[in-house]
Design a protein around this nucleic acid. Structure first.
Lengths: 216, 216
DNA sequence: CTTTCCCGTCAACACATGTTCACTAAAAAA
DNA sequence: TTTTTTAGTGAACATGTGTTGACGGGAAAG
């Protein structure tokens, strides 16, 4: 027995209350409302703890929110790393990346949902943090693309634009996927196929790119 | 004098309270929080009316929300109509459409912001209504594209996919634009340029589209 | 051992919230 | 005109909220 688990109203829960608070909040966000609509008491109740215990771990709700955001970012970066270390771009790579990505989304619904909601409805602090993170992803993607042989005739600015296009779409499709029931296999498969098609269009459509008339 | 405007604690405000409530709520959403975080009393206070007066116009807050959504949709459809009745696609059309669209966004910040926030953080009812509306837009766009001469070799399914790509991106760029300060002219100009570039890539990149190997 | 400190509990507060009810003045209908 | 309907007000309620303070048990440090 590791923690003397009588499980019944034992008082000090050995630092695991903090995590209980975090996952309680996360659950509530997933199945109820934006984080800003959660009340401290609500969270502590769901965590099985008295309201005042909250202050032992966080100064206030917004601190909890930022911690949750950090945790989500860790998930996101881990995903990014895994997607990036795919091999160089042959025809198959695209499908592979898309699949690993959306598998990640499925396995981390809560975090993706949290970020997605906060991006639109969070405090300015949160929104900025998320948008900064997304901009970082975009930059990394642009750098990766610069290494693709069939894209090496594209200048840096256009690569950035392309990467933005990709990220915007993946983001949108992610939100679409998150709206689906977890059971809806066919729906999820459709999103995946759409994603692959759209990315294919972006990647290979860029081949037409040549110096054209208008704009500076 | 039309409405006997002594303006000072005059009692019946002739049906204009309803609108006051709506725009009060809209303002609060714009500069404070998601709609779900607004309180009835907060709204009535901002509207300059006693809390109980609310019930003369709406059964509860969620009804106000739906009304606000309706109003926003009217704005959105009007915009769509105006963008659609642009001429057929020469090189200039793209820029023209992009400009009219984002002008609309600028002139209706509140409505676009409201919809954008509710899409992510609203009640399921709201989210579904918005997604349905967006799907409608996408379909109309696909139909419009079908009439473009240089796209008439694309089958319906791919057109739908293309339209989705366009809508996803415009949505994302809209949110980006809404994050900018209203004064930030250069920032807004940049978004506009990016938009045009990205759309150009989508529209003309599709020229490469030919029956290729993989996927069903 | 004793002391310290972490961490959960309980009681209590001041305040904001949604909603009710009865009341009334103006506008509209008769 | 009189009557009815519409749309505002005020007092009052039960409940939910963030936060404070003093208390105490168990784990870790001395």
């Amino acid at each position: 027995m590791t923690t003397e688990s009588t499980s019944r109203s034992r008082k000090p829960k050995r630092g695991q209350t903090r995590e209980a608070l975090m996952s309680a909040a996360l659950e509530l966000v997933v199945k109820k409302a934006p984080f800003s609509a959660l009340s401290l008491r609500e969270v502590t109740k769901k965590a099985g703890v008295v309201p005042t215990a909250f202050y032992r771990h966080f100064p206030d709700m917004s601190a909890l929110g930022l911690t949750l955001l950090d945790e989500s970012f860790r998930t996101l970066r881990q995903m990014m790393r895994q997607v990036r270390q795919q091999e160089l771009p042959n025809e198959r790579m695209l499908r592979g990346s898309v699949e690993t990505y959306f598998t990640y989304v499925r396995n981390n619904r809560a975090h993706f949902l949290f970020v997605s909601k906060e991006l639109a409805s969070g405090t300015p602090t949160m929104r900025n943090a998320i948008r900064r993170e997304i901009r970082m992803f975009t930059n990394e993607l642009a750098m990766d693309m610069a290494r693709f042989p069939f894209l090496n005739h594209i200048n840096a600015e256009d690569l950035q634009m392309m990467a933005g296009l990709v990220v915007n779409n993946v983001t949108a499709l992610t939100q679409e996927m998150l709206e689906l029931e977890e059971i809806d296999e066919t729906g999820q498969q459709e999103v995946l196929i759409t994603a692959e098609k759209q990315l294919r269009l972006i990647y290979f459509g860029v081949g037409m790119w040549r110096s054209d008339k208008s704009h500076s």
